[in-house]
Design a protein around this nucleic acid. Structure first.
Length: 256
DNA sequence: TGGAATGTTCGGCT
DNA sequence: AAGCCGAACATTCC
């Protein structure tokens, strides 16, 4: 489920349940190694909840609780534990569940925020973005997915941003003209802002902490529209594999 | 039945 | 060193 807009939506919906609350206990139902670190969070008060790239960070008295939703993780303001509930945050008032079918997600206690990530995809300035593009000898699709280059983009919004900018996913980052680099920066900020405003994309079963779906999937122009006509030129949308990820683009609007 | 799915990490190769 | 590739993690859905 989770790229920047989905994580941002979860943060906004879960924050009111967590801020000011005391984490009495964290019960884990998994044998993943991350479950052992959460003990250090028990007994602590949650001072703030914020998004850091695709991480949800709970600021505690000491250190942070870092939640990553992986591919299918959900944070739910609920007490209805199900077969995929991997952790239960027991608060002094209420509970929050961490459900995760595929178990690529995690909840772990950290001394400080995760290091070595690039600037936030919604906050990066055009100048900084251009400078960073220039410094990389890599193709755009894998580069934009790389969280140490820019944090927050995933497969959906990378494809959507490249389409909006009219840039081929295999184009070399360092060889983009300044104009096209700026266009890409605007496309990224625009598509992410619009998606946040729509509560993210519910392409399989993504829901926010209150169980509500997002609606941005209705605005997707290329992602999972293989064979359907391009909304701009009518050419069928093509799907290729780029570093093992399905990559969708319009061969006419996004020439190499 | 095989393949694909919103993600990250690690080892190996160039 | 940087970047690419494939595999691995676990499960469901079509």
């Amino acid at each position: 489920m989770p790229e920047l807009p989905e994580v941002e939506t979860v943060v906004r919906t879960v924050a009111p349940r967590l801020v000011g609350r005391r984490l009495l206990k964290i019960r884990c139902f998994t044998r993943k190694p991350w479950a052992r670190s959460v003990r250090k969070a028990e007994g602590q008060t949650v001072h703030s909840v914020r998004r850091y790239g695709k991480f949800i960070l709970l600021e505690l008295d000491q250190g942070l609780l870092a939640i990553h939703l992986g591919m299918t993780g959900k944070l739910l303001a609920s007490i209805d534990e199900g077969p995929y509930t991997r952790a239960v945050l027991v608060l002094d008032q209420g509970t929050v569940l961490f459900d995760d079918v595929r178990q690529f997600g995690s909840v772990r206690w950290l001394r400080r925020e995760p290091g070595k990530l690039g600037p936030d995809a919604l906050a990066v300035t055009a100048e900084d973005f251009l400078r960073r593009l220039r410094a990389r000898k890599a193709r755009l699709k894998p580069l934009l997915l790389n969280q140490s280059f820019l944090r927050g983009l995933g497969n959906i919004y990378t494809d959507e941003a490249l389409f909006r900018a009219g840039i081929h996913p295999l184009a070399m980052a360092a060889r983009l003209t300044g104009q096209r680099g700026l266009r890409l920066h605007s496309a990224i900020v625009e598509v992410l802002s619009e998606a946040v405003a729509k509560g993210g994309s519910s392409i399989s079963d993504y829901v926010d902490a209150d169980g509500r779906q997002g609606w941005f999937q209705l605005q997707h122009r290329v992602y999972q529209r293989t064979g359907e006509p391009c909304v701009v030129c009518g050419e069928p949308i093509r799907r290729i594999l780029v570093s093992q990820r399905g990559t969708h683009f319009c061969p006419r609007c996004q020439r190499r």
